[in-house]
Design a protein around this nucleic acid. Structure first.
Length: 320
DNA sequence: AGCTTTCCAGTCATCGCCAC
DNA sequence: GTGGCGATGACTGGAAAGCT
């Protein structure tokens, strides 16, 4: 189980690959949390947090007393995944507690470090949520949240990028963010660069794109340096059918639009039947796509196609 | 089944910028 | 001039998908 590994791994507080920092000395409970910007402090905080978490008992809390973390780490996720988790919790109960801290400004309330989906499932089931309650500094909270995300391994590149960018925007030092996300400075630089360079509305419209990795997001970031490409991307995400596509398909559509050269006509594609008969010609002009059927040789097919187009379109709409 | 291609992510080297 | 920091290009190995 990933979360068991989280606790097991973090007590060792391994450094990110490529990180030249040395392992922190053992810290005593109760020592003040060092200021962000210190690599030793950040890593040491993880070790200390987990040691403290282990020593705390699990409580059942009303979900309505728990507020979101000040850093969002997920784009809109799949309802299907959430339903599965809710069903599992209904059948088997909540196996793994979430981590919360007492709310820094509101007495009697809590703020979640990780376990948002389990919290949402508890809300849907109308049950209290099992939680470890632990006073955490902001740094400790984001490091715990980041480490949990790393162990879960189901955050996409862009979700990690946004998480990293939000941490930096809130003033966390790069060392703290590197510790939280288990990346070296190169990886962190690429994460933040992608999240910052791509307009947030375009990222939100695309969604998490779980199969799309660093290089292609970087390609999109480079392409969107051009205002024309941004305009083109926004035109694509405004199409009514766009939200119905899978997230990775949405990414591909935006990347295609952002990297298409204006005014450049694609080479025409000839569509042939199995016996090699030329059926139609497809030409992509960027803004429009033309389908040309030769009426001299394919008059019957041309008529058939025009008559059936509404039906084909209706089937397409039902598919997506 | 085995080969090829594509994609992802880790790593290294290098560069530019900035403070001292 | 030097060192620290962040950004970027290039290379690499591994995994997954596609093809024969």
């Amino acid at each position: 189980m990933a979360r068991k590994n989280l606790l097991a791994n973090l007590t060792g507080a391994e450094l990110p690959a490529g990180n030249s920092m040395t392992a922190p000395p053992a810290m005593r409970l109760g020592e003040p949390f060092p200021a962000s910007g210190s690599a030793r402090g950040a890593i040491g905080a993880v070790s200390r947090s987990i040691e403290q978490i282990r020593s705390h008992s699990v409580m059942d809390l009303p979900p309505d007393l728990i507020d979101a973390s000040f850093i969002e780490d997920r784009l809109a996720g799949s309802d299907e995944d959430q339903s599965r988790l809710t069903a599992s919790m209904r059948e088997h109960g909540q196996q793994v507690p979430i981590l919360v801290r007492p709310h820094p400004t509101e007495t009697g309330r809590y703020q979640i470090a990780y376990g948002r989906r389990r919290l949402r499932a508890a809300v849907e089931l109308g049950r209290p949520v099992r939680a470890v309650v632990k006073p955490l500094s902001d740094d400790q909270l984001v490091v715990a949240q980041g480490q949990e995300n790393n162990e879960r391994k189901d955050l996409s590149f862009i979700e990690r990028a946004i998480f990293a960018a939000q941490l930096e925007a809130r003033g966390f030092g790069r060392d703290t963010i590197m510790a939280a996300m288990c990346v070296d400075k190169t990886g962190l630089s690429r994460l933040i660069s992608s999240a910052v360079r791509i307009p947030r509305d375009i990222i939100q419209a695309i969604g998490p794109a779980p199969k799309t990795g660093r290089d292609r997001w970087s390609d999109l970031a480079v392409a969107l340096d051009s205002p024309r490409a941004v305009e083109e991307a926004r035109r694509v995400i405004a199409v009514p059918l766009f939200p119905k596509k899978a997230s990775d398909e949405r990414f591909n559509a935006v990347l295609r639009s952002a990297t298409a050269e204006p005014g450049k006509r694609d080479k025409a594609t000839i569509i042939k039947s199995d016996d090699g008969t030329r059926v139609a010609l497809v030409r992509n002009d960027g803004d429009r796509l033309s389908l040309v059927v030769d009426k001299k040789s394919q008059a019957e097919f041309a008529t058939y196609l025009v008559e059936r187009l509404p039906e084909i379109y209706a089937r397409f709409c039902a598919r997506v």
